[in-house]
C-alpha cells in the first residue's frame, strides 16, 4: 500500500484477526456448554474477513477468500445441514432425528452430540458464506476504500 497513515490500524488488526477467528472456533465448538453456536461463530468469522477487507482493501480480501469460495461455502453449509437429515433417514429414523444416527436407545447421547455438532458446522458454513457474499456484493462495487472514506 502507498503512503500509509493507517499503520497502527494495520498492525493491530493483523494481530487481532487470527484471534478473532480462533474465538469464533471457540464459540462454535463450545456452543453445547455455553452461549454461542454456529450462527454466532459464522458471523464472527465473516466479521474477521470483513475487518481484513476494510483495513487492507477489498481486493486483498477477495484474493485471500475468493467470492466464488464464499458462495460455494454458503451452499455447502445448507447441504451439510440437510444432509444430516437424510443421514438420519438412511439409518431408518425420521428426518433430522439424531437419536437414529447410531441406532441408540433413548437416554444415550452420542447421536445427539454428533448430529448437533455436524449441523452447527453446516450453520457455520452457511452463515459465514452468505454474510461474506452479501458483503462482497456491496463492497465489490467500489474498487478500493479511499482514505477520505474513513
Amino acid at each position: 500500500m502507498n503512503a500509509d497513515h493507517h499503520v497502527i490500524l494495520r498492525v493491530v488488526s493483523k494481530g487481532l484477526i487470527p484471534i478473532i477467528i480462533l474465538f469464533a472456533f471457540y464459540v462454535q465448538f463450545h456452543g453445547d456448554f455455553g452461549p454461542g453456536g454456529g450462527f454466532q461463530a459464522g458471523v464472527i468469522i465473516a466479521v474477521a474477513v470483513i475487518l481484513y477487507a476494510l483495513v487492507f482493501g477489498v481486493p486483498a480480501a477477495m484474493r485471500a477468500v475468493p467470492p466464488a469460495f464464499t458462495r460455494s461455502l454458503a451452499a455447502i453449509g445448507v447441504m451439510i445441514y440437510a444432509g444430516v437429515g437424510f443421514w438420519a433417514m438412511l439409518q431408518g429414523g425420521n428426518y433430522l432425528e439424531y437419536q437414529a444416527l447410531f441406532h441408540e436407545p433413548p437416554g444415550e447421547h452420542h447421536g445427539q452430540h454428533i448430529g448437533i455438532m455436524v449441523i452447527e458446522i453446516g450453520v457455520l458454513f452457511g452463515v459465514s458464506g452468505a454474510m461474506l457474499t452479501i458483503f462482497y456484493a456491496f463492497a465489490g462495487r467500489v474498487a478500493e476504500i479511499r482514505d477520505e472514506d474513513w
Partner: peptide, 26 residues
C-alpha cells in the same frame, strides 16, 4: 433452524443476484 439457515443462504443469494458478486472490479 434448517429453515433459518436456508433463509440466510437465500438472502445472500438474492443480494448477490441483484448486486452482482462484486468480482468484476477485482
Amino acid at each position: 433452524t434448517l429453515g433459518e439457515t436456508t433463509v440466510v443462504f437465500t438472502a445472500g443469494l438474492a443480494v448477490a443476484l441483484l448486486l452482482g458478486f462484486g468480482e468484476r472490479s477485482l
